[in-house]
Amino acid sequence: MNIFRLAGDMTHLFSVLVLLLKIYATKSCSGISLKTQELYALVFLTRYLDLFTDFISVYNSVMKVVFISSSVAIVWCMRYHPLTRRTYDKDLDTFRHYILVGVSIILALLFHDRFTFREVFWAFSIYLEAVAILPQLVLLQRSGNVDNLTGQYVFFLGAYRAFYILNWIYRYFTENHYSRWISWLAGFVQTALYADFFYYYFVSWKNNAKLQLPA
């Protein structure tokens, strides 16, 4: 564990807490893409298949349970909770996210570390996470005004993978033959997808103005 990865995990955890706070405090999930939440639940369910087989550390197992349970709980809330489900922008959240799932499956079958059940699912989860934010970014552009908590949620969700890139650079130079090119490439694409969001987020923060994404 290094400081970059810890910072990344804490930022990721914080983004989940901000999202839960937003839904709980405003009793609304307007501006949140259910499709991105479903993709993230799928990412965690397919990446943490080793939760019960490989024990890395208490921290690792606890964080896996937290990410799986929070993402499933948010999807349940947005789909079935009588109060919040009505506030979901169903007609704005129209990204065809099953295409992202299909492309990730094909990529995982083509590019993986080893052709085993675990590794193909792991590669699938890495590719899917790289594009999982797309429905959310499209929804933000469509819904115009972005409330603070939603903006912070997306910001921290994007920042966590940037910390992971620093972690991979650190591990590359400190651990011999550490190579995770699947994570590196996907992580770079994932962070790059946030580039314009980060730009508008910075501008809104600098001008102390409401976050506005151009349509």
């Binding site: 990446r47 080793d50 490989d54 690792n60 570390d113 992971y164 033959h177 995770r180």
Partner: peptide
């Protein structure tokens, strides 16, 4: 070799 390394990252 690197491929047998378990995925120790989240």
């Amino acid at each position: 070799d690197t491929e047998t390394v378990p995925h120790d990252e989240l």
